[in-house]
């Protein structure tokens, strides 16, 4: 459907895509060296051939648009910020694990689950994916669905939902792509779904403040 516009984009941004492929090939080669453990010429040649085969196979599918019609982009990440972000994410994993473990072992189990739905303004699908996985890994929240710009998130307790709504994490993800990104302009249209599929009350962000 979006095939023609897709091919035009390929023509204009060819060098960028080429760079992404080289980066992928280098990462895969590093993976092969870690896995193999034989550093003689023969095994390195096998590895180079395998990496070429895999990259060639996956190069062809990188032009196929995603199922919601968008092109797959995302090679314009600011790299040093991404590395810092990964360390932050590691710390979040530790925090969320201990938090849910604390909730599990608490005798009265003080949870108050709710499903929150909000709309995000992140620039491209990859940013949305990073945000979704980050939400899953931060304490007490689990991304349940992403449709277009709308995120559906299951939150275990109420404080976590407040933190989610503040748009802080979205700004963090946005700063991976844009130079300036403030929490205030990211998150809009928050509504709390009381049952699974229907909206009872819909509160905008201004009213909550």
């Amino acid at each position: 459907m979006a095939q023609s516009s897709g091919s035009e984009q390929v023509q204009t941004g060819f060098f960028k895509k080429y760079k992404a492929v080289i980066l992928q090939a280098l990462l895969l080669m590093a993976l092969w060296l870690v896995l193999s453990g034989h550093f003689d010429l023969e095994h390195i040649i096998y590895g180079a051939l395998s990496v070429l085969l895999v990259v060639w196979l996956n190069y062809r599918i990188s032009f196929v648009p995603m199922s919601n019609g968008e092109q797959v982009v995302g090679s314009n990440v600011i790299v040093h910020r991404m590395i810092l972000y990964l360390f932050w994410l590691l710390w979040q994993i530790v925090k969320s694990g201990t938090f849910v473990a604390y909730l599990t072992l608490h005798p009265k189990m003080p949870i108050n689950p709710m499903i929150v739905r909000f709309r995000s303004k992140l620039p491209n699908p990859l940013a949305k994916v990073i945000l979704g996985n980050s939400i899953t890994l931060t304490p007490g929240t689990l991304t349940v669905d992403i449709k277009d710009d709308f995120f559906t998130v299951h939150a275990l307790i109420k404080d976590m939902e407040e933190e989610l709504v503040s748009g802080d994490m979205e700004a963090r993800v946005g700063r991976l792509y844009l130079n300036k990104c403030t929490p205030e302009e990211m998150c809009t249209d928050i509504s709390i779904l009381e049952s699974s599929l229907e909206i009872r009350k819909s509160v905008s962000r201004r009213d909550r403040k």
Partner: peptide
């Protein structure tokens, strides 16, 4: 086993096990 519904169980399985 202890959480009351599916979604909270997904929290337990997805986060605590990963950290473990």
């Amino acid at each position: 086993n202890r959480f009351p519904d599916f979604f909270s169980r997904a929290h337990a399985s997805g986060k605590v096990d990963t950290l473990g």
